[in-house]
Amino acid sequence: MHSITLVVNGVVREATVPARTLLSDCLRHHLGLTGTHVGCEHGVCGCCTVLLDGEPVRSCLTLAVTADGHEITTVEGLAGPDGEMSPVQRGFNECHGLQCGFCTPGFLCTATALLRDNPDPTDEEIVEGVAGNLCRCTGYQNILKAVRRAGELIREEA
């Protein structure tokens, strides 16, 4: 067993995990943060995407022990301190960017980093940015609208 310390959504969290524990399972089972979803567990679907030191990564392809000492942001950490939704979350809300919601945490984390680095992406850049996330419900059109709208909100509020 390994004792690890992660800063998750700004809070220092400790966990004792076997080395083979995936970051996704550590977040869900050890830390009770079930917002990070697990679909394929081999890197294809993207719904487990979280931010590791600010960069989106697959939590199903990262060992929790490798992340020891690092900062993680999950979907639970995107909203503001009083629970007000982030621009990306509002974009998804306004544009009906989800149906069942299974893929949504991954899209939100991916889009959050995408728009932070590039608040005014072209349609092509948006498609390239979220192409690694699969959605079985929406047909993607509203997700692309939501990311575009989130970019507008970020630029308006900047």
Binding site: R20, H42, G43, R58, C60, T66
Partner: peptide
Amino acid sequence: VLAGGQSLIPLLNMRLAVPEHLVD
């Protein structure tokens, strides 16, 4: 050796690789 894990961890998850030791 474990580097980015983007090929090795899928192989571990699917039990296609079963190393005794992992050097991160």
